[in-house]
Design a protein around this nucleic acid. Structure first.
Length: 473
RNA sequence: GCCAGGGUAGCUCAAUGGUGGAGCACAGCAUUCAUAACGCUGCGGUUGUGGGUUCGAUCCCCACCCCUGGUACCA
């Protein structure tokens, strides 16, 4: 009965510190992984650092730091965030890891052998100041880059390697349409399909050393070129489980059962990635879950507006589970969700302190008068399974909170503090406590810390009241 | 411009071709087992705008406005 379940979180760019959007995805992935572990599946959750992008080099230069040191440090901050959120990544695969480099070179060689990689010149607008190519939309009104106003861009052409994406148009359309490669929700699936329908063009998958600032994965047998960051970044999903490194491990885990990503990188995962794999003759991932973004007071988060939210101080102030709860319950998995500290605080007090926390506290106190006989056998209901497997995190939590409200109503109606007969009181409390234990179980994937505390408190037949789970703020 | 999704109470969202619902916030009542918590009651909406179909539309059709995403080498 033991299935394996391999799930990946998108690997964040490490050119800046993590923001609350990263926390959202971490928490979603972790919740799914925890659920599968509870089902008894052998589960592996991977994340890592996308460290080979030119943007990292630029950011390091700006910070006047050696590039490797810079990406190591930033990558570590992301990893640290995951720990603070109680997000358990089994593998943290760094893009700058030499093992990952050799694994990616192997992927390249397989595509090359298939005849899908060829050389061609690439033309674009080049900023000498940044040593970068820019697209028209990335430029200001004078068609100059924002870093170097007044500096004219040059039309430069360069020999690059290209990948025959066009060759795989039909195949990719079929695997998406048929559901062999499932994209959730439908809106994103349709978006990918309509992109394919426009006709796929071949893509450049390498840069010159100069342009790449001698950073990134070397192209096999060509000392002048480095891989385009997405070619190797996607391969982190494979190198992290041993592709071209540890055959046994790779065969055990690959293909991924689920990739979790944000809407901004749909194309790379829905189209490029399966194409690279098809070319290399490797298995395809089974499912892609695409979440949306977090806005701040209705506005998009961006460095220029200066409204980027750092999750770490929030965790310190409210606790990991409080932030997890907000992100899973109050942010829709399928549409943009808004965040503000005020809303977090409101939710904390209303749902966690007054709701769950208060229920647990009042019941524990009532239980001090009796000794209970508990025989809970919590398990996931079919509705629960269906919802979580459809990524409807908010729906599940809403149901649980309806249950909490019902228990509060039951207690008010029965007035157990007035019951004199111990047997009667015991019977009533047993049923309430069993329900609480069930709630704690259902919360396991979502709020691991809280769930554990509740289970501990209601484990013994002699229950005593304890410190509040969520003191009001 | 084109394609997709969306515009419903202060906020977040649900609903159905037939007299608009929930949670939060707010106000009042009640109460102590509990974290001045829980419960009950109330306040609150001409369902983006203008037309049309229909006995009747928030839900169907048309036009327009606004928001979000995509529209390739850019998370």
């Amino acid at each position: 009965m033991n299935n394996k379940f391999y799930i990946t979180n998108a690997i964040p760019y490490v050119n800046a510190k993590p923001h609350i959007g990263h926390a959202l995805e971490f928490v979603q992935s972790d919740t799914i992984a925890r659920y599968h572990r509870l089902l008894g599946d052998e589960t592996l959750l991977l994340c890592g650092g996308d460290e080979n992008a030119i943007k990292n080099v630029q950011a390091a230069e700006k910070a006047k730091r050696p590039i490797q040191e810079f990406v190591d440090e930033n990558s570590a901050i992301f990893h640290e965030l995951s720990r603070k959120l109680n997000v358990e990544f089994d593998v943290w695969q760094k893009g700058s890891d030499p093992k990952h480099h050799s694994s990616s070179q192997k992927l390249w060689e397989l595509c090359l052998k298939k005849g899908d990689i060829y050389k061609q010149s690439y033309k674009g607008l080049y900023c000498v100041g940044c040593e970068l190519f820019y697209g028209e939309e990335e430029l200001d009104k004078d068609r100059e880059c924002f870093e170097h106003p007044g500096k004219k861009l040059e039309e430069v052409s360069e020999e690059n390697y290209f990948f025959k994406l066009s060759k795989y148009q039909e195949q990719i359309e079929n695997i998406i349409k048929s559901g062999e490669f499932q994209i959730i929700p439908d809106r994103r699936k349709n978006e990918a399909l309509s992109f394919i329908k426009q006709g796929l063009k071949d893509i450049s998958i390498s840069r010159s050393n100069e342009r790449a600032r001698n950073w990134g994965v070397r192209v096999p047998n060509d000392p002048t070129q480095r891989m385009y960051v997405w070619f190797d970044a996607l391969n982190i999903y494979q190198s992290g489980v041993g592709f071209a490194l540890d055959e046994k491990k790779y065969n055990k885990w690959w293909p991924a059962d689920l990739h979790v990503i944000g809407k901004g990188i749909l194309r790379f995962h829905a189209i490029y990635w399966p194409a690279f794999l098809l070319s290399a003759g490797l298995n395809l991932p089974k499912k892609l879950f695409v979440h949306e973004y977090i806005t701040v007071n209705g506005q998009k988060m961006s460095k220029t507006t200066g409204n980027v939210i750092d999750p770490i101080p929030l965790i310190e102030k409210y606790g990991a589970d409080a932030l997890r709860y907000y992100l899973l319950a109050k942010v829709s998995p399928f549409s943009d969700g808004d965040f503000s500290e005020e809303k977090l605080k409101e939710t904390y007090n209303a749902d966690l302190a007054n709701g769950l926390g208060n229920l647990v506290a009042r019941v524990a106190k009532l239980c001090e008068r009796v000794i209970l006989k508990l025989s809970p056998t919590p398990k996931f209901s079919e509705d629960y399974k269906k919802a979580i497997e459809g990524f409807k995190f908010n729906e599940i939590l809403e149901n649980i909170w309806n249950e909490i409200r019902k228990l509060d109503q039951q207690i008010n109606k029965k007035e157990p503090w007035k019951i004199k007969e111990k047997e009667k009181l015991k019977q009533f409390l047993q049923s309430i406590v069993n329900n609480i234990i069930n709630i704690a179980f259902e919360l396991k994937p979502f709020l691991p810390e809280t769930s554990k505390k509740i289970e501990e408190q209601f484990k013994e037949s002699k229950i005593v009241s304890q410190k509040p789970l969520f003191p009001r703020i």
